[in-house]
């Protein structure tokens, strides 16, 4: 009977239809393995050793979060992700998550979904021990480090309008050498970065923070489920004391005032 056969064909087509919808790239919340973008040149946060192994606070936090998402360390891959390529790397799917001193800003939120922040760093200032610099205003007339490609010096000279003299250096590591050699009076940037570079070098962080840098976890734009899962992992990381332990492990000797209470999350958008 033709009508019946027609019905069977029609039903078959319709039955298949719902199964074809709702694809698209999955959430990091249900991934078997993960690629994590980190910095390679920031001691204490993310540094790639000569053996190719990444170490630092960012790396440890990433391992903890991935573990809470159900991905063990053996199925994690780290990839060096410099500041300029972070948005592109996420959009292209080269990395699934970014833990790389990635400050949450309104502008970046247009292209990236941010979980966290997992820590709120503050711009602070590193000086030689015994120097008479107590807050950012004391930098007036002093020589501060201007690292190529970093905006930290602008926050002093332009945003705060303090007449300090920027002296260029290629990296923060070079700034530390210049500071020790007396070619500079102060290095001003995120306190965690200062603490990482200062470790074992004998500089003094003045503990006069003047900005909030919300270090977020970058996810592909729109992965709200993954973002919420990461936030739950970060909440747990602070509740079970892991965050305090990791902060102490990497920055405990720096003399920096560390916050061991969970930061205010940005909200997943």
């Amino acid at each position: 009977m033709r009508a019946t056969r027609l019905a069977a064909v029609a039903a078959g087509t319709l039955l298949l239809a719902p199964a074809c919808g709702s694809s698209g790239p999955g959430s990091v919340a249900d991934r078997k393995s993960l690629v994590i973008g980190v910095k390679a040149d920031q001691p204490g946060l993310g540094r790639r050793g000569p053996d190719g192994v990444y170490t630092g606070f960012d790396v440890d936090v990433a391992v903890y979060v991935a573990g809470r998402l159900g991905v063990p360390r053996s199925r994690l891959r780290f990839r060096t992700t410099n500041s300029s390529v972070r948005e592109a790397a996420l959009a292209a799917g080269d990395v699934d998550l970014i833990f790389a001193t990635y400050s949450i800003t309104a502008r970046r939120k247009k292209a990236v979904t941010f979980a966290g922040p997992y820590y709120v760093a503050h711009q602070d200032t590193l000086v030689r021990p015994g120097a008479a610099i107590r807050d950012v205003r004391d930098l007036k007339g002093k020589r501060i480090c201007e690292v190529t490609g970093s905006n930290s010096w602008r926050r002093v000279v332009e945003e705060r309008e303090i007449a300090a003299t920027p002296v260029t250096a290629p990296t923060y590591g070079a700034c530390m050498d210049d500071l020790a050699a007396g070619r500079l009076d102060a290095v001003s940037t995120d306190d965690l970065i200062l603490a990482g570079f200062a470790a074992g070098r004998g500089g003094k962080i003045i503990n006069a923070p003047f900005t909030d840098e919300k270090y977020g976890v970058g996810l592909r734009k729109g992965d709200l489920e993954g973002c919420e899962a990461v936030n739950r992992a970060l909440t747990r990381m602070y509740q079970d004391g892991t965050a305090g332990r990791l902060l102490d492990k990497w920055f405990g000797d720096s003399g920096l005032k560390l916050t061991t209470s969970v930061p205010q999350f940005e909200g997943c958008t």
Binding site: E228, N231, S261, Q264, F265, C268
Partner: peptide
């Protein structure tokens, strides 16, 4: 920060329920 996160986290639960149920309603319609 904790107070803020409480609302975010419970709001996330509502968003998830919304996404799941709404797609269930739409596929139910199909």
């Amino acid at each position: 920060p904790k107070a803020y996160n409480i609302t975010l986290d419970s709001g996330a639960a509502v968003r998830q329920a919304y996404e799941t149920k709404r797609s269930a309603v739409l596929s139910g319609r199909t």
